[in-house]
Amino acid sequence: MQDAAIQAEGLRKSYGNVEALVGIDLEAPAGTILGLLGPNGAGKTTAVRILTTLLPPDGGAARVAGLDVVRDAARLRARIGLAGQYAAVDENLTGRENLEMVGRLYHMGRAASRERADELLERFDLTDAGQRLVRTYSGGMRRRLDLSAALVARPPVLFLDEPTTGLDPRSRIGLWETIEDRVAAGTTVLLTTQYLDEADRLADRIAVIDHGRVIAEGTSDELKERVGGERLEVTLDDPRHAEIAISALAPMVDDRPTCDGTNLHLPIRRGRGAIAEAVRRLDTAGVGIDDIAVHRPTLDDVFLALTGHTAEEAAEDGRPPDAEPREERAAA
C-alpha cells in the first residue's frame, strides 16, 4: 500500500526504566480505521503521543499523512486532529468559545472559526449547550466537544485515545456513528480502546497490544480465526438422539464434535446459513431440538488465547479506566 496514512516501524519508547513501547509496527491505509486494542498500561497512549508529535520516539520511525512525525512535525500538526484520553476542553470557556479558539489556533481566521464552531456544535447536538460554560457539561457532552475540537480543521488523519471510556451506552453509540461518518468521508482514524466490542464494531484492522508490543494484527475476523473458527451449539430435546444428530450434521462439521448431555458443540467451517442448514438436516433425520445457535469467538477469546489473560483482567491490574489522570510527567 503506497499511501498508508499512518505507518510506524519499530517504535520504541521508555520512561526511565519503564519500557512503554518495545518496537511496534502499525499501518493504516487512507480512509480506514485502525484499532489499537490493549489493556491499561499496554502503551496505547504512548503510541498516540508519538504519532501526534507530542513525544519523540527513542527508536523507530513513523509517517502520518506522508510526513515524518519527528522531522516534519510542524507541518504534520496542520493535518491531524487529536482527542486525547481525557476530554481536553477549557472548563471556563463555553463550548463555542472552545471550538473557536481551536479554529483560530489552526489559523482558520475569525469568521471561518466561528462558522465551523457553529457547524460542529449542531452536528454534535450541542447547539443549546454551546453558550454555556463547559464546567456545566456532563461527561458525555465534554467528550463530544472534545471530539468536535479534534475535527475543527477537517484533518485527514484523526487520533482518538479511548474516545468512549467512561461514556454511557447511548453516548457511546452516538460517538461510534460520528466516527463512522468521518471515515465514510475519507478520514483515516487511529483509535485506541480497551473495549473489544468497540474495536470489533469500528476497526477495519486491529492491532492487539500488550506490554508495549503488537501481539497480533489483522481484521477482527482474522483474529477470531486464530482462536479457532465458529461453533454450532445445538441443544437436543432428547439426549439419546445425540448419535443421530452428529451423523446428520457430519457434512457440515470441521473437527471433532463434543457432547455433554443434551448439548452438542460442533466446530464448523462457515457460519453463514449454518443454522438453516443444520435445522433442515436435523429435521430430515427426525431429531427434535430445543435451541440452536452459532457461537462466534469474541475478541475476549482472542485476547485470552494470545496472552493467557482476558483484557479486563489485565485492566484490573492497572488503574481503573476512568481513574484520575496520572501526575507523573515525561521529561523526554
Partner: peptide, 19 residues
Amino acid sequence: DLKKGLIDRFRSLPMSRSA
C-alpha cells in the same frame, strides 16, 4: 492545563510553541 490534557491538545496544533 497540563492536568486536564489541554497542553497535549495545544501541542498537537499547528500553533506557535511559545504562544
